[in-house]
Each structure stands twice: as C-alpha cells, then as structure tokens.
Nucleic acid binder design. Structure first.
Lengths: 298, 298
DNA sequence: CATAATACATAAAATCTCCTTATGTATAGT
DNA sequence: ACTATACATAAGGAGATTTTATGTATTATG
C-alpha cells in the first residue's frame, strides 16, 4: 500500500544538506565527503523527478519543491531520533529480571531496595514466574532459575547451591517431644514426601526411609510454598537453609540438624544471554548480586 | 548534534515487520526475502542494544521497547511518504516556465488560457525575465529564449524565426506623407538605431544606411519595449511581424513593406533540459506550443 | 502419531550500493 | 591574475545487503 520511498540514505543526506544549505557542511556533519553528498542528492533528485537544490555559484539553495519537503523530512528524522534515544535509554536504564518465586521471596525482596539505592539510574522490573527462561522468547535481561546451570547460550553464575535440611515449626517438634534423631522426623507428616531431597537426606544420615520414592523432579522453584506450610505447622519440609535464615532466627522454623545435604551441581543460578554480558546494567546487577550472595551466605 | 540513527534500511524493515507482526509478510511487502528481514532485524537489535521482537513459535511479537518505538517509526515513515507524494505531485503537476517578455506579451499571454483549459491538471507558473536560462540554477521546467538555439545540454525547438520588418504608427507615417519606399524611413527617428537588424534590413533592400552601425547584440528579448515606443509614435521600430499581428490588425502599427528579413538561425526558442524531455508535463506543453506556433504563424 | 506446512534463523556467496579518491569547473575574494 | 571555496563527475573498491540453501521448532492434518 505505502508508496515507494526514495533511498533512505539519500533522505538522511538531504535532510542535513537542506538544514545547512550546503553540501560541504552537510558532508562534515555526516562524516562523509562532499562528493558523496553530491552523489546522493543526484540520486534523490533523479528519483523524485525534479531538482531539489539550485546550484548557485558557491552555494546551493532549495528549489520550491525542496523547500516544501525539507521541513517534513527534518521532522520525520527528529521523530526517529527521539524514538531511538528513548529505546536506547530504556535499553540502558530499565533492568528486567525474571526469577523463581522462592528466590524472590527469600532473598531478593529484602535486598533489592539496596540495589535501587546504589543504582538509582536503573529502573528495576521484577517478574516472578517458574517457567523456563528463554531470552529470545521473553523480554528479560536476566533470570534467576533453579537447575544444574546448563543453559545453552547463557552465561550462568551459581548463586546458592542446592543444600537442604529438614525444617519444621517449633510447635510441631514439641508435639512429638522434640526432634532428637533423624528418624524422629518420620513420626511427622512430610510437607511433600515425594520431594527427592528427602530420600537424599535420609540416605546421607543413614536412615532407612522406605516409602520415600523421590520420583518427582526437585521443585526448588516452589520451595517457598513448602516453607509456608512448615511454618504453619502442617508438616516437615526439606528446605535450603540460606533462604530461611530469618525464619530460623525468628524461631518460626527450626532446623533440628546441622547436617546439610548438597545436591551437587544443582542450585539457584543467575542466567543471562552471553551476547549481552557486557551491558552496563547487566554487569551492575551481576556484581551486586554475587556480592550479596557472598556476604550473606558464608 | 543529532544523535546517530541506526541503519535506515533496517528501520524501514522494522516498520513493516512491526506493522505486520511477521517477518515473512513484511518481506513480501518490501519485495525481499524473509532471510533479509531477519538479518536486518538482527542488525537493528544489535544496534539498539536490546531485542525488539520476541521470537515465538510461529510468529514474532514486539518487546516492550519495540512496542514503544514502532508507532513513532511508522509515523516518521508516513511523514516521509507524504512529503514525497507531495513532491512528486508538484513535480508532475506544476509547470513553471520562464520566458522573455516579448514572447510572453505578444504570444503566450493570449494563448495560455487555452493550455490551461486543455490541461486543467497542470498548474502553470509563468515568469518573465530576460536573463539567460540555466536550469541548474533556476527552478524552471521550460524556458523560452531568443538566440541561435545553441544551449548545451538543452533540448531546443525553434518557435519563431527572427524575421523582422520596420513598423511604425500610422500617424508617424502620415507625418512624412506616408512611407512609399524604404529610404523614406530614414526621415524618421529609429527607436533603436543601434539594433543590428536595421542594417541587415536596409542592406537587404539595397538602401545605403550609413550611420547604422549595428554594433550591439540583438535585443529581441525586449522587442516589446521598442514596439510600445513605436505605437506611441516615437519612432520606427524593427519588429517581428508574427508578434504584432494584433497591432497591425488593429491599426496601431503599420508595416509599410512586406519584405521581411530573416536573421538565419536566430529566433525564439523553446528550451528545456534534455534529461527531462520525457516528463509528461514537458511533453504536453511542448506539443501544445509547437502546434500553436504552427497554426498561428503559417 | 507421522507428515506436511509454516515461520524464523543462519551461513555462504553474490550482488550492488555507497563512499572515497582524484580531478574538473565556476566563482568569489585578494 | 591568483588563490581559495564550493559543487560535479568518473572510476574504483570496500562494505553492506540480499539471495540461496538449509536447519529448527511448532502447528496443522490425515
């Protein structure tokens, strides 16, 4: 439908030449030679079918037609420039992160304020969702995901290894006279008995745990739900202690055993596209986050 | 000052792709392959520093940033398209002519109305000036000039040969008892004795005309002034009869001798740039004018 | 459920645009 | 007259853009 436009490069040149009333000055602005400007204007005039400049002795001036279109072309280019300044600005100053709920709730939420203060030029958009990150399909700069760190094309940093240990509410522990040895836990309901971590943990403690099949994939991403259930006294959950420092300190959860299992290789990872690893906003967040993790989780 | 824009070709592609929400459809509109669109969008995204499209299974959709700039880019391109429609329109439908005064007054003025009626899609701008036509320096489609038809780079058509014969007002003729033979004219003042045509004409009539030097260049372009002087009875002028049919018919001028001299090669010419000889508006005017001349000046 | 069809990505090669260099012309200033 | 300025033009080449060919993922279909 839209009628054919002249070569766009010639329009850019026209815009500058019209603004300066001079091919030479336009060429300087555009960082090209005067010959190139002359050439482009010839192209454009041929295309439009009518001269746009009058060649006076030592200067050029616009013809009637040129005079008519020049301001419109200038306006159009200003729109474009404005649009891309906006875009680049957004690209530099808007940081959007997608993270698994657990990490957002138990780690990021309470610390993000710090980051914002540190980098008040960055606006942060935080999205919590569990789905796999695919940066080519979703509009995020960085993601935090649980897994084994194998995401192709992505730069990854292990934030928190998948360590785990049982936790429960003090009341629940009291209800069976306290938890003295691992097998005491089996007297209580497990929040999610199918979580493979249970078997791993009991195995490592040398406790026979028939019936714990561990046939499900780990659901680290939604640990948080299990944690809430445990806090509410509904059962024992197997959780990552690093995330529940606060609850443990407050006493809303207790960790009966210091023994922490480690699901080697798995954990919470920071992920972002390799190609964008050098963007300032990405560096800023990465550096900040890695430092927070280091400081906070021994 | 203006910040650098991304490659313009990629913008054109982006505009179409955003509008269609599809690389394939955009490629069809732009008359290129889908691969080319994909490539251009990659370029643009690299340049802007952020993705503009999300690659979904069998479609693409704009990212937040893409969404933000798309309407602006579309608007800019619409401005450009509008500007060039205007320009092309003007280029097609505005005919500007520069002509020597004599020809305008004595020939064109009374006939141009006809042309306008015949081609009411063309707006005619008529400029009368004597200066030499240089289409690269002045904004005209066609020129009518007197001379020998030697204008380089120009297409030329002889309209009216430089024929000439003395003319004067009837009263003036009466004042010397009428003009019977050429030498009678010498009893009267010549409007411009230095006009070389005088010598040519007297010579051709076999009349000795000492004192008529003819050292000036012909000033055909301003014959009209001499004609007015002659009509006012101020002297005898040497004029091109074709231009003064009306005055002769009205009787405000008389041409005492049918003998008409011919300054071979010289005359009134229609001139226009060779490069533009095929423009419809130029053809229309040329054909009309040549026909008018043929019909009117035997 | 296998197959075909659709939409986009990517690599390599061909093409073509655009720019530069070099030079020429005309004009204004000294 | 001479120099400097501004634009035009031609030739050559670097680089950008496009196409061709192929791959991948997803949806639709028999």
């Amino acid at each position: 439908m839209p009628s054919k436009l002249p070569p766009l490069s010639s329009l850019r040149v026209f815009e500058a030449a019209a603004r300066h009333g001079s091919f030479t000055r336009a060429s300087k602005e555009l960082g090209m030679t005067q010959a190139a400007v002359s050439y482009q204007m010839k192209i454009l005039e041929e295309r439009v079918g009518t001269p746009l400049f009058l060649r006076k002795p030592r200067q050029v001036s616009l013809t009637e037609t040129g005079e008519r279109i020049a301001p419109v072309v200038t306006e159009a280019f200003e729109l474009l420039r404005a649009a891309f300044v906006m875009a680049e600005d957004a690209s530099h100053n808007l940081l959007s992160i997608t993270t698994v709920t657990t990490f957002a709730t138990n780690f990021l939420a309470e610390r993000l304020g710090n980051f914002q203060i540190l980098h008040d030029d960055l606006a942060v958009r935080l999205d919590t969702s569990m789905s796999v990150v695919d940066f080519s399909r979703e509009d995020f700069d960085l993601g935090i995901r649980s897994g084994d760190g194998q995401w192709q094309g992505a730069e990854t940093h292990l934030l928190i290894p998948a360590k785990f240990s049982p936790m429960l509410s003090p009341d629940l522990a009291q209800s069976v006279g306290g938890i003295k040895k691992p097998s005491d836990l089996l007297k209580l309901p497990l929040v999610d008995a199918s979580d493979p971590w249970w078997k791993l943990w009991f195995d490592s403690m040398g406790v026979q745990s028939e019936g714990l099949r561990g046939n499900k994939r780990s659901r680290m991403g939604i640990q948080m739900l299990e944690a809430r259930a445990a806090e509410a006294g509904q059962g024992v959950a197997i959780l990552t202690p690093d995330f529940y420092r606060d609850s443990l300190k407050r006493g809303s959860l207790i960790q009966p055993f210091d023994d922490v299992c480690h699901d080697e290789g798995r954990g919470y990872w920071l992920v972002y596209p390799k190609a964008r690893r050098n963007m300032p906003k990405i560096k800023k967040f990465r550096d900040w986050l890695l430092n927070e993790v280091k400081e906070h989780c021994n």
